[in-house]
């Protein structure tokens, strides 16, 4: 079965317009030891849109996100079954290089985690390890460009040598986004990027997600349904390891097909 079939199959399962698909997951099961955390999830991540994963805590949405750049490999006892493709390549195939995969599928975490280095070094880190800059000048250009894209340049351009940990929480999170952008990824995964931030910082990140959309395929996990409604075009609702419903955000929030989705969106549980 080739990648196109997968993409078709996934697309067929959801009513909607034809999309340019970046990542496709098919029948994904994830186990932590004997416990199954993800049960047969099939989903697609479109190229030019933001996909939101919502659901009550412990439903597996973060776990699923981490399978998309194989961060679950770092958890001992974790096992992934099924088929996940990036541009048609199986990312769990032995020929897939995990280092390159993670460069192409960047990630932003729940809590801002800048390295205890200078702002410049934080952004330059990924570029350095992947050898993406051939000169100091190019490196500076990449750092500046990434910080500008992350909307942080104006705030930090005069203190690039200050420690990244000295920034405020919202700035730190934008620094982490800049850090991810600097490696020139194709997909950016965001794992509840605003859960540790105040409303103003959250608004800035959301605005930033808007700006980044179109340039990168974005998947965002959030427990905040308003946020999902604000930033995403597609929404996937997870419950107890199952993908309950997946579709256009506007449709999902106005007219959910499943009762469980409806209950969750209307605040019955979660």
């Amino acid at each position: 079965m080739n990648a196109q079939n997968f993409a078709d199959a996934a697309t067929d399962s959801t009513a909607g317009t034809e999309r340019d698909i970046k990542m496709v997951a098919r029948d994904v099961n994830v186990y932590y030891g004997p416990k199954q955390a993800i049960k047969g999830v099939s989903i697609e991540i479109p190229t030019d849109e933001v996909t939101a994963f919502i659901g009550p805590s412990g439903c597996g949405k973060s776990t699923f996100l981490r399978t998309l750049n194989r961060m679950n490999d770092t958890v001992s006892g974790a096992r992934v079954e099924g088929d996940i493709r990036l541009d048609g390549e199986n990312i769990y195939d032995s020929s897939m290089d995990v280092v390159q995969l993670r460069a192409r599928v960047g990630m932003v975490f729940q809590k801002p985690n800048p390295f205890p280095k200078s702002i410049f070094e934080n952004v330059a880190y990924g570029t350095r390890i992947h050898g993406l800059a051939s000169s100091r000048g190019e490196m500076e250009q990449i750092v500046e460009q990434s910080l500008k894209r992350a909307g942080l340049w104006d705030e930090v351009k005069d203190r690039l040598n200050d420690s990244g940990t000295a920034l405020s929480g919202g700035q730190q999170q934008r620094l982490c986004i800049a850090r991810a952008i600097a490696v020139d990824p194709e997909v950016i995964l965001m794992d509840e990027p605003c859960s540790a931030l105040d409303p103003i910082a959250t608004a800035k990140i959301e605005e930033l997600i808007h700006e980044l959309r179109g340039r990168y395929a974005i998947a965002i996990v959030t427990h905040n349904m308003q946020q999902a409604a604000r930033v995403s075009q597609r929404t996937a609702f997870f419950h107890l390891g199952h993908l309950v419903e997946y579709g256009d955000t506007s449709e999902m929030f106005t007219n959910p097909r499943e009762q469980r989705t409806k209950d969750y969106i209307t605040g019955r549980y979660g």
Binding site: Q145, K148, R149, G151, D154, E211
Partner: peptide, 8 residues
Amino acid sequence: PVATPQVP
């Protein structure tokens, strides 16, 4: 607002 300056 998060302005995106001209980025090459």
